[in-house]
Write a protein that binds this DNA or RNA. Structure first.
Lengths: 128, 128
DNA sequence: ATAAAACTTAGAGCTAAGGTGAAGTCAAGA
DNA sequence: TCTTGACTTCACCTTAGCTCTAAGTTTTAT
């Protein structure tokens, strides 16, 4: 199976423009073209795009993703290097998770404080 | 107690430049000045700065933080509004947490896949 | 009292990650 | 054949969030 840029855009919620931009920047590898020169994405491309999206959403900058994708282009020789990048990113995500949890706590506490103040004001108003 | 901009910068890991920038943009309220015009931060300012940092780190854009801070300047009348903003942000953080967890899964799986490939190659090499 | 360090404002410049628009090519249907 | 719509490249525009510079003033330590 292969897909046009529009199909991929719909499926991934990444605009056609951004798909081209990613390719130009090396964040995606060179995508195969049809006779007329239009991009034809394979299932493998889609799979890679899924990973890229995940890396991006966990805070990896595009230039680091490009490095990863370039290594991938160089074949199995770079497997260990790519593994190390993923390992580092895993650690990274773990730290973000922990930080996010702490921030959740903080917002929750502040919220409780505000709710307390509001309850007081409520009580105050009722007294009169 | 009051603190100079440098002390606050050291304590919060937010550069003096950024502290001034935040104030100019209304992300921080107008900070009191010394005789000569230098900023003197109070403990209350520091507390607010902590909340601001938390909101920012959980993805709230500066302009929304500004709105929050402006409401705070308007006094207790806006308590309920501010509570609602915090409530929404709490929900927001929860969603991010969930998403981050899913991304952690994805990276972990991919990593396992890579480790599998590497183990194979290892075995392959040993056979010879 | 004076020198060095830290402060002030105003404003320009930078980076990341896109978005926009022009100008042209190509393929398929009425 | 003509038109419609998706595709191409290329160059410039936008936004968020800083980051730095310049030129001058204040604070602090001796």
């Amino acid at each position: 199976m292969s897909y046009t840029i529009k199909e991929v855009a719909e499926r991934t919620n990444i605009s056609a423009h951004v798909l081209r931009y990613y390719e130009k920047e090396g964040v995606l590898p060179r995508i195969d073209r049809s006779q007329g020169g239009s991009r034809r994405y394979t299932d493998e491309d889609l799979d890679l795009l899924g990973l890229i999206t995940c890396l991006k959403n966990t805070g990896m900058p595009l230039k680091d993703i490009r490095t990863f994708v370039q290594l991938r282009e160089e074949g199995p020789v770079t497997l260990a290097q790519r593994r190390d990048i993923l390992k580092a990113q895993q650690q990274n995500v773990l730290e973000r998770l922990e930080e996010m949890r702490m921030n959740y706590e903080k917002v929750t506490k502040k919220l409780a404080y505000y709710d307390g103040l509001l309850a007081e004001r409520q009580a105050e108003g009722a007294k009169k």
